[in-house]
């Protein structure tokens, strides 16, 4: 990382004091990553940008609540906050509440298969794949697979049942797997 500039903890402390320069630096360091988080959740670039701004402003307002626990903890905190802001936004829009009616049990557990081949996919393509999932599937996939929420937490956050969450996850996995296969075929790998 940037060893030449000020340390995470100093940056955070300066931000607590509302130091404009430090706030600018906070933006410079983290905006891109938080933007990716927002995009992953909201699935649309303009909106993600707007949401990232919200999250950033919220972070600057509440940075005094941040507890430093080692290098990287600032990002972890910002990311968590951004995820929460994103989920709030989804909920606000009522998007995440629309539970798909097709809750019929598809093969919920697909055979575990070797997905080593997915390693060749560029991160941006992965991100786009996730972003293009339907709202609910995207939310569940993000929360469960990437941000490590449990089905219980997901159920509470977006107002579905735990079973529903698991079944939605299975569908999002299946859909992503298809997207991966397609991509690999298209690029001839």
């Amino acid at each position: 990382m940037r060893t030449d500039s000020i340390s995470e903890i100093d940056l955070a402390l300066k931000c607590v004091r509302k130091d404009q320069k430090a706030q600018g630096e906070l933006y410079t360091r983290y905006a891109g990553r938080l933007y990716a988080v927002c995009f992953r959740y909201i699935g649309n670039k303009e909106e993600a940008q707007d949401l990232m701004h919200d999250a950033m402003i919220k972070a600057m307002d509440s940075i005094r609540l941040f507890h430093y626990s080692g290098e990287g903890s600032l990002y972890a905190w910002l990311r968590r906050l951004t995820v929460n802001v994103s989920i709030d936004r989804l909920r606000e829009k009522g998007k995440a509440q629309i539970v798909p009616l097709d809750l019929t049990m598809e093969p919920a557990v697909s055979e575990p298969q070797d997905d080593e081949d997915a390693d060749n996919i560029p991160a941006q393509v992965m991100l786009d794949m996730v972003a293009s999932l339907p709202d609910v599937r995207r939310t569940v996939f993000n929360m469960y697979c990437i941000d490590g929420f449990s089905h219980k937490e997901i159920a509470e956050a977006i107002n579905i049942t735990e079973k529903g969450s698991a079944s939605i996850l299975a569908k999002s996995r299946a859909q992503l797997r298809n997207a991966i296969n397609e991509y690999l075929k298209r690029t001839g790998r």
Binding site: G32, R33, Y35, A36, F39, R40, Y75, P112, Q113, D114, D115, E116, A118, D119, A123, Q124, M126, L127, V130, F141, C145, I146, R173, L176, R177, I180
Partner: peptide, 17 residues
């Protein structure tokens, strides 16, 4: 054996757009 969501997690967690 690696499942794709692990790969996704690995690559997307700190990804910068």
């Amino acid at each position: 054996m690696k499942q794709f969501e692990d790969i996704f997690k690995e690559r997307l967690e700190g990804y910068e757009m």
